[in-house]
Structures are given as structure tokens and as C-alpha cells.
Design a protein around this nucleic acid. Structure first.
Lengths: 195, 195
DNA sequence: GTCTATATTCCGATAGAC
DNA sequence: GTCTATCGGAATATAGAC
């Protein structure tokens, strides 16, 4: 995979990020060396420092980008009925998680390896995403379409349940994505008392 | 914390395991050095090798022990009504998870750092625990006490939801353990169609 | 069982040539 | 922008004294 010298900034940058994301998710941030990332890209270790000031910034960048992408991909429809909004959230969260397994895994696995500043930034974004689900639940409870004891606790419980799909789902397995999402939506609907 | 020389095998062994568990959970297996573990215990790094052949075995030992403890702590009552068994499982799983946060976190965070043999051993134990929940769900569905589309998927979903409590619960927070367990049981009951 | 000392390897990051 | 080469330090693990 080694190449002779040459300038390919436009493609090398994303390749570095892709390789780092994959390796960090697979082996853990601390277990992956800059040399391994470089080898996966096909350059020497020193070349990576043209794209990131250091290893820590590389991680922080991956995590904040993931959270921002997640937030901008989720489009709530505040005018729709709460149950419809909730179903959309469930299906969106599952699909997005399965489409970005590495980033999802990394972003609740390596938060502890972020500097305080970077951690705070990611936590804020995550809080905003969680709050968007809480708002749906509150609206549902207020409208009488859902019956739930604690919107905040329910938010945490549901997100953990939905994200957990990445731990066991395998493409080509017994259930396809549609079937999985249908089943999870059934569970969620029951959990919020809208069964 | 450094001590002068002396023989304290009986207490040092557990101290090494405790320190390793805490540090691995906090910072990640790869990020923790044998020197750090030794410093936490109050010995020099070389002394650790009287208790473990290497770092990898230390991790494997912690994870298999955790799974074995979990399995032997859980006592199902197969004769009781399914809903009662399910409630007992929910309360047990939450309580046990909150009592062993570090081990729980570690055991689904550092599986990837196990050798294939050690991984297979842990996966088998985990599978047995999961199966004990699946059995309850099947019994509930057969008895008509629960309404669920897929016992296996429901097992994975519920365990992820319940384990997730370790991500946000804080002692002395807005809700105490009892209230948390009550709310989760309400969510589970709804999810399995027994609301 | 624990210490000190060390062999060996690898790490992140930088310097300077091209 | 990428290379080669290297600095300074820290890692796991071992050897031998006590």
C-alpha cells in the first residue's frame, strides 16, 4: 500500500479520518498508534501531522463532527402528532446508528479521552439531541397520546435501547433493517403507553 | 502510598484486581499502564507479575469473574408467574449493574481486547445470561401474559435499556434507586404488552 | 513477595530534504 | 505534502538481590 512521494491532499485528508475512525472504534483510541493509522492510509507517520496537530485533536474532530452530523440529519416535525414524531425518531435513530456504527460506538466509548473543552462541546451537542426526544415525549404526554412517568428517564432509557441495536445487528441476519425497526417501534410504543 | 518491602500476598492480590478494574473502566485497558496499577496499589510494577502472567490475563480474569458472579447472583424462580419473574429480572439487573458499574462498563467495552479464547469464554457466559431473560419472555408469551413479536430481539432491547442506567444514574440525584427501578419496570411492562 | 535495574520495543512528535 | 531519520520518553516484561 506504500506509495512513492506525491501530493494528494484532497483525498488523503478524508482517508486519514476514515482510517482513524475505523481503527479507534475497533481497537480503542489509546491502543491505536499514529503509525497504524498512517499504514492504513498508505503514508508514513510524519505525514499525518499535515492534517491534524496531534492525535487528540484527531479524536475530538471525529466526535464533534459525528454529533453535528447526527443533529443536522435529524429533522423533527414539531407540527405533526406526537406519536408520529416518535415513530420517526425511532426509525431515524436506528437507521442512522446502523449507518454509522463506528462513530456511534466511538462517541460514547472514548468521551473520557477528550480534553475537558472538547468533552464539554460534545456533551452539549449530545444533550441537544436527547432534548429533542424529551420534547416529543412531553408533547405526547400533554396531548394524552402517551402515558409516561418521567420524560427525562424515558428519554435515556429509549436512546440506550435503540442504540443497542448496533451491538447485535448483522447485515444479512435473521431480520432485515425494516423488520428490526418495526419491532423496536412496537416496543417503544408499548413503553410509552401507546400500545 | 509507596511501602517498604514485605509480604502481603493475601491482601495485595485483591488490591491489584480492584485497582485494575477501576483504572481500566475509567481510562480504558490500553490507556492504563502496569506502572499506574502498581502505583495505585502501592507497589512497584514488577511486583504485579506475581499475581498475573501479563496484562492481558488480568483483563480476561476480571471479565470472566464478573460474568460468573453475575450469573450466580441471578436466581430465577421458574415456577413463579412470568410477569413476576420479569419484574424480578428488571430489578435485579438494575441493582446489580449499579452495584458493579465498573465491571459492567468494562465487560462490554473491552471485549475486543480479549484473545479469541478468552472472548469466547466471556461470550458464552453472556449468552447464558441473555437466554435466561429470553426464557422468561417466551414463558410470558406462551401463557398469554405478554404480547411480543420476537423474544430474542426483545431480550437484546431490554438488556440494553436496563444496562444503560449506568450511563446517567448518579447517587444522590433527582431519583433514588427504588424510583428508577419502578420507572424502568413500568417501561418494560409496557414494552412487553403487559401494561 | 517485593525491590531495583534493565532489555527491548514502541510511542508521539519534530526537523529537514525533496 | 510526503519522505527519512531521529529525539526523548514510556511501555511490557524479566533478572537477580534481599
Amino acid at each position: 500500500m506504500a506509495r512513492t512521494t506525491g501530493s494528494r491532499a484532497e483525498i488523503t485528508g478524508p482517508l486519514v479520518r476514515d482510517a482513524a475512525l475505523r481503527l479507534f472504534a475497533r481497537h480503542g483510541y489509546a491502543a491505536v498508534s499514529m503509525r497504524q493509522i498512517a499504514a492504513a492510509v498508505g503514508v508514513q507517520a510524519g505525514a499525518l501531522y499535515a492534517y491534524t496537530p496531534d492525535k487528540q485533536a484527531l479524536l475530538a474532530n471525529l466526535l464533534t463532527d459525528h454529533m453535528e452530523n447526527l443533529l443536522s440529519a435529524w429533522n423533527d416535525g414539531p407540527a405533526a402528532p406526537p406519536l408520529q414524531r416518535l415513530e420517526a425518531f425511532v426509525r431515524f435513530h436506528i437507521a442512522y446508528s446502523l449507518d454509522h456504527t463506528d462513530a456511534v460506538f466511538l462517541s460514547y466509548m472514548e468521551l473520557r479521552n477528550l480534553s475537558p473543552d472538547n468533552f464539554a462541546a460534545v456533551a452539549t451537542l449530545r444533550g441537544r439531541y436527547e432534548e429533542s426526544l424529551t420534547a416529543i415525549l412531553r408533547a405526547g404526554a400533554d396531548a394524552g397520546a402517551m402515558r409516561l412517568a418521567d420524560p427525562r428517564l424515558t428519554t435515556m432509557a429509549l436512546i440506550a435501547m435503540l442504540t443497542g441495536v448496533t451491538n447485535w445487528y448483522r447485515e444479512g441476519g435473521r431480520l432485515d433493517r425494516r423488520a428490526v425497526a418495526d419491532h423496536y417501534w412496537g416496543l417503544v410504543r408499548g413503553a410509552v403507553g401507546a400500545g
